Simulated scan of single mutants.
Amino acid sequence: MAFRGPKVWLWRWRRNPLRRRADAMEGWVLLGAGVLTVLAGVLAGLTATRSVEDELAREREDWRPAVAHLSERAPGTATAHTGTASGDRVWGRAAWTAVDGTAHSGLVRVRPGSTAGTPVVVWTDRRGALVSRPATPYEARLRASLIGGLAGVSTAAVPFIVGRAVRARLERRRMDQWDADWARFDPLWGHRTG
């Protein structure tokens, strides 16, 4: 096992006769990539979270429930089991009146075998078009947090990966310099043994 001394912080910026210019450049690249990674990730995450929260709050404000009535009998047969899982539902044609008084119709999920005229609660936007039920405040926060986290991590990955690639390039360059220096001085030392 190789001996390792105590960890020296900020060694790339300290004066040292063995420190090369590439060491200082690597330090600045790592610092810049780290700062950009954190800033880009946090800003992108917060921006995406706020945007999703605002959009979902606007949906909760604009979308309203309406009572629709089936226009025709729904396909299938009614059974004793009347669960509300989507597997127990079929598409049926219904009609409803929007807030502005215009008549609308469309396909909605209903229990199999529901008769014509059966009331069904649907959600509509301001124009009366069918929409899904808006997210609750809890669901909106959860969704916004997940999307914001994903956006933050994805954005932060860009400067992180670029910084690692630049660091790898500097490392290869430094090793090439060491090889060139070793090739130049190795013949001078080679004749001392014997």
Rank of each mutant, 00 (worst) to 15 (best):
P75Y: 07
V38S: 15
S154Q: 04
W13R: 11
A94Q: 04
P6H: 09
S132L: 08
W182S: 03
V108C: 00
E59A: 05
R143M: 06
R12N: 14
L142Q: 10
L39G: 02
A140C: 01
G152M: 02
S71L: 09
A80H: 06
W189L: 01
G148V: 09
Y138S: 10
A48S: 11
L39K: 05
D88Y: 05
L146W: 04
R50Q: 05
W11P: 14
P17I: 12
G117Y: 14
I161G: 12
E55N: 12
S145F: 14
V8K: 07
R60S: 07
D181H: 02
L107C: 12
A95S: 09
T77R: 15
P137K: 00
L18A: 10
D125K: 04
P119D: 09
D62N: 09
W189H: 02
T155Q: 07
L107T: 13
L107M: 09
G194Y: 01
A22N: 09
V8W: 05
A68I: 00
R133E: 04
V120Q: 03
A78C: 15
H69C: 08
R174I: 08
A24M: 10
T102S: 02
W123T: 09
R172C: 07
A98N: 01
T136F: 04
L31F: 06
G194E: 06
V162T: 04
S71M: 15
F3P: 11
G148W: 04
G5C: 00
R60G: 07
P187R: 01
T97H: 13
L130N: 09
R14A: 03
D125G: 01
K7N: 03
P137N: 01
V67L: 11
L146A: 06
T124R: 15
T193Q: 13
M1P: 14
Q177D: 13
G148Q: 05
D23M: 02
V38H: 12
R169Q: 01
G5L: 01
H191K: 10
E26I: 15
L36A: 04
G41C: 00
P159C: 01
G113E: 05
W96D: 06
A98F: 00
D186Y: 09
R127I: 11
D54P: 10
R19S: 13
S86F: 08
A44S: 05
R192G: 06
M25S: 12
R164E: 12
P17A: 10
V90K: 02
A85R: 14
A85E: 08
Q177P: 10
D186F: 15
V90A: 02
A168H: 15
D62G: 11
V122M: 12
R173S: 03
W13G: 07
G190T: 11
R141P: 11
W182D: 02
W63G: 14
V52Q: 00
A180H: 08
D179N: 13
R169F: 01
T118A: 11
P65H: 03
R93E: 03
R192C: 08
T47R: 07
